[in-house]
Nucleic acid binder design. Structure first.
Lengths: 253, 253
DNA sequence: CAGCGGTGTTGCACTGTCTGCAACATTCAT
DNA sequence: ATGAATGTTGCAGACAGTGCAACACCGCTG
C-alpha cells in the first residue's frame, strides 16, 4: 500500500538470508543504488539494520529487542508459563505453547528437560502446521469457511509416512479434533516423536493458544504418552481459567 | 532520511509498549489517521504488525522469525555455542555470550544450568552496559576517542553500591580491563551476583564478542568464582582460535 | 428506534518527498 | 599509476504520500 515502506521492509527478509552489500540490495529490490542507500540508512537509524565492518548490511540489534518486547506482551504466555513448568516437572517431557496468527502457527514458549540450550532455536519459528498437534487444535477452532480456505492454501509436505497427505484428510482430522477437544501427532513430523495437545480457551470459549507434551518413542511409547492426556488437559484448563479471569490468581497482600 | 519509512518504523517501538488502536498510533506519530492506516497496512502486509480481535494493532509474528534468522546468521554465536555448553557442563554456572553494536551490548547466547526456561527472557535484551563484565571488555576495545564518546553519553544508574558511578570511573575501569585482558562484575548489577568475563578476538586481534560466567554469592564466593578465570580465558581463546580460522575444525570426511 | 459519538475506511486534489540520474569520492587490485 | 568496483552526494522532475472531507460502521443512550 505504501511503496517506499514496502520496499524498505522487503529489505529485512532479504538480509535475514545473510549479509548483503548496497549493490545486491538495490538489485534485488529493483531500484537504483541511491534509493536503496536511503532506505538502508533509514532502517539503520532505527537500529533494524546494522553495518558490519566490511560495509555489508546485516539485520540489527533492535530487532531482537522488539521481538523480545512483543513476546513479553503476550499475556497468555505469561500466565501459562508457570503451569508449563509445573507440568514439565511432573512428567519430565518437553512442553510447548503455541498460537495461531495469519496462516501460521508458532511456538511462543517451550520447556525442555534435557537440552535446555536448543530452546530458542524453535521459539518464534513457524510450526509444521499440517501435522503438529497444537496446530490442529488452533486451526480446528477457526470458523468453517476460514478453516477450509486455510487448508486449501497449505502445502502438505510428507515428513513421514504418517504425515497428513492433503487438504481433505486434514479437514477430516480437524473435524475429529474439534469434537474430541484434544489432538495428537503420532510420528507425523518426525518418525520417532509423539505429541499430545490440549487447547487453551479465552472467556468466550474460543481457542487462544494450545499446549502440548512431546516425547520420543525411545523414552515412552505413544500409548504411554497418551496416559498423560488427562494431566495435559487439566493443565490447559487451569491456564484457560486463569486467562479468562475465571480463576483469579491470588496476589500476595 | 526517508520520511515515510521513518514514520512507519517509529510505529514498531510504539507498539512494543503494548497494543494500540489507529487513533493512538496516528496521534503519537503526529499524522492524520488515514496516513497511519496506510503505514499500518504496509507493516501488516509484511507481517510485522498484527491486528488482534479487538481491532487493535500488535507487533506481529514475522518479527520473531526475522530476529531468529538474524540470530542464526551470527557466526560467532554458532562457533561459540558448543564451547559455552562445555564450560557450563564443567562448572555448572550460567554462561553468557555478548556482542557490542551501536552503543549497546547485548547477549546473543546464554546457557543456564538451573532455570533453563528463563533463558530467552534475556537474550536480545540490552545489557547493563556500565557494570556488566562483558560490556567492559567490549567497550575497552573501542578506539580511545570512541570509547570516550560512548562513556560520556551513557547513564550511570546506581543498581547497587558497587555500580560504576560515572564516566570517569568507567573509563578508568576500562583502561584496567584493557590491560589485564579480562573483566569482572562483583555485585555491580545485582548485589549478590558476580561475573568473570573474557574476550573473544577475531583474526585481527579486535574483540568481536565477550563471554562470562555468572553465579550468585550463595553458591560460590567471588573469590571462588575467580578461580574459574583461567578456564574462562581458555574457553574464550579456543573460540577466538576457531573464529579467526587459526584452529580449523575438523569436519568428518 | 432514532440519534449520537466514536471508530475505521475510501477517493481525491495537491504538494512535498522520493526517485533515478550523473558526477564525484573512495577503496582496492593490478 | 591506472582502472574497476563500490559507496555517496545534489538536483530537477515526477509520482507517491499526505491530509481533508465525506462515508460507513459499530455500540450507546435517551
Amino acid at each position: 500500500m505504501s511503496q517506499t515502506v514496502d520496499r524498505a521492509l522487503s529489505i529485512l527478509p532479504l538480509l535475514a538470508e545473510g549479509p548483503a552489500d548496497l549493490g545486491q540490495v538495490a538489485d534485488r529490490l529493483g531500484v537504483h543504488k541511491s534509493t536503496a542507500l536511503r532506505l538502508l540508512r533509514t532502517l539503520h537509524e532505527h537500529g533494524l539494520v546494522y553495518r558490519q565492518s566490511d560495509q555489508r548490511y546485516r539485520l540489527g540489534a533492535r530487532l531482537f529487542a522488539l521481538a523480545q518486547e512483543a513476546m513479553e506482551n503476550l499475556d497468555v504466555r505469561e500466565i501459562a508459563h508457570p503451569h508449563l513448568v509445573r507440568l514439565n516437572e511432573s512428567c519430565g517431557h518437553t512442553v510447548h505453547l503455541a498460537v495461531y496468527e495469519e496462516n501460521e502457527v508458532l511456538y511462543i514458549d517451550k520447556v525442555e528437560s534435557r537440552y535446555p540450550v536448543r530452546m530458542y532455536s524453535r521459539i518464534g519459528k513457524p510450526v509444521a502446521i499440517t501435522v503438529a498437534a497444537v496446530a490442529k487444535l488452533l486451526l480446528a477452532d477457526l470458523p468453517e469457511h476460514e478453516r477450509r480456505a486455510v487448508a486449501e492454501k497449505l502445502d502438505y509436505p510428507t515428513y513421514t509416512a504418517r504425515s497428513t497427505p492433503n487438504a481433505g484428510a486434514f479437514l477430516r482430522e480437524l473435524e475429529k479434533v474439534r469434537e474430541q477437544g484434544w489432538a495428537t501427532d503420532l510420528g507425523g513430523h518426525e518418525e520417532s516423536i509423539n505429541c499430545v495437545a490440549a487447547p487453551i480457551r479465552g472467556a468466550d470459549g474460543r481457542v487462544v493458544a494450545a499446549m502440548s507434551v512431546s516425547a520420543p518413542n525411545v523414552v515412552v511409547t505413544a500409548d504411554e504418552l497418551l496416559t498423560l492426556l488427562p494431566l495435559v488437559r487439566r493443565t490447559a484448563d487451569a491456564i484457560s481459567g486463569e486467562y479468562s479471569g475465571r480463576t483469579p490468581v491470588n496476589y500476595p497482600a
